[in-house]
């Protein structure tokens, strides 16, 4: 069971379909479009129990710091960020101020998820 929220909890945003496609991937618990500057979820599609606001704020901060680190290291823009943990992981792909974030279990196919996220990130405006 999942919920889709856009801050007002009503009308669909332009990102609803992108997020729905990502959540349909095996092992994906939630997907979010987050403003990197504000750390606030613009839209989210997550299972009950996922603390969307906390994940959005922390993942946006993580993406921002990764972007700054890559810039300082002369690596250019961050294209994809993957964080592995004991029971799953977080992936992020950004475009301008918007960051696409997914939370996944260990059984998720990260390669496929990466392809889908990179494709979806191109559609973020």
């Amino acid at each position: 069971m999942s919920t889709s929220r856009n801050g007002r909890g009503q009308a669909k945003t332009p990102y609803a379909e992108i997020l729905a496609v990502l959540v349909r991937q095996r092992g994906v618990l939630g997907s979010f479009v987050v403003s990197e500057r504000d750390g606030i979820a613009v839209d989210s599609n997550a299972q009950i129990g996922v603390h969307a606001e906390a994940v959005a704020a922390l993942a946006a901060s993580l993406h921002r710091k990764a972007r700054l680190a890559c810039g300082a290291a002369g690596c250019g823009d961050v294209t994809f960020l993957r964080l592995d943990a004991e029971r799953g992981g977080i992936c992020a792909a950004g475009r301008d101020d918007l960051v696409l974030v997914t939370i996944s279990e260990t059984r998720a196919n990260i390669g496929l998820l990466r392809v889908e996220m990179m494709r979806a990130a191109k559609a973020l405006t």
Binding site: S35, R37, D38, G39, I40, A56, A57, S61, R64
Partner: peptide
């Protein structure tokens, strides 16, 4: 300032 964000501050 930009060392943090409103999302983190609210959290």
């Amino acid at each position: 300032d930009d060392a943090t964000s409103i999302g983190l501050v609210r959290l």
